[in-house]
């Protein structure tokens, strides 16, 4: 009798803890990281001799985005912070040198570093999961729009690429941003191919 009461008390406590955790987790967006699994490698023999810059500020890096996860929950992440390295690695795999600047009109940095092209990226993302029980997104899309200008601000090209990633619950283990990381790998490879085949950017 005493044992049964104790079991019942413990079960109630566990249920309460789980319910509180479920409620709290459901109220707050689950943080994930979407930095890619692989970034393009630099090969010294095939580089354009030009130097380029990309625009990114601390305000961009600190921009937190919330999109849909599964089970009615949401996920949050920092797309510019997580995608800065792949954007830079793509440019480093194609050009002799790469710099980060705070604005396309930062003439001191542009002239001082002998920059030929300025890439200004804009990132938009979406995610979802059909799961009724689990929050990590199983589908993730990243769209990268990049305007490319010359040192005096003339438009050279506009690039738009989209990357997709999907992941099943059985693959997540503790890597809950896996679909996003796959989308980031996909978008960075497509970004590289787009620049590579654009004659105005060589």
């Amino acid at each position: 009798m005493k044992n049964n009461l104790r079991k019942s008390f413990l079960f109630s406590r566990l249920t309460l803890i789980i319910a509180i955790n479920t409620f709290l987790c459901a109220c707050i967006a689950h943080p994930i990281v979407i930095s890619p699994q692989e970034t393009p490698k630099r090969n010294g023999t095939t580089l354009s001799p030009k130097k380029v810059a990309y625009v990114m500020t601390d305000a961009d890096r600190n921009k937190q985005v919330t999109t849909e996860g599964g089970a009615g929950d949401k996920v949050s992440y920092f797309p510019y912070r997580d995608l800065e390295k792949p954007i830079r690695d793509v440019l480093r795999s194609l050009y002799s040198d790469v710099f980060v600047i705070k604005s396309p009109s930062d003439s001191d940095a542009i002239q001082g570093n002998g920059i030929s092209f300025i890439f200004a990226p804009e990132i938009s993302t979406s995610s979802n999961s059909a799961s009724m029980f689990t929050w990590p997104p199983t589908q993730f899309s990243i769209e990268l729009f990049c305007s490319v200008t010359d040192p005096v601000g003339n438009m050279i090209s506009r690039i738009r690429v989209a990357g997709n990633g999907s992941a099943e619950f059985s693959e997540f283990k503790t890597d809950f941003g896996l679909a996003g990381r796959r989308a980031a790998t996909d978008v960075s490879e497509k970004f590289k191919q787009e620049i590579k085949t654009n004659k105005r950017l060589r």
């Binding site: 249920t15 803890i17 789980i18 955790n21 479920t22 987790c25 089970a71 029980f133 689990t134 503790t174």
Partner: peptide, 12 residues
């Protein structure tokens, strides 16, 4: 289902 998932999450 959600309770079970939460239980797994708590355990993990």
């Amino acid at each position: 289902g959600r309770l079970l998932l939460a239980a797994i999450t708590v355990a993990v």
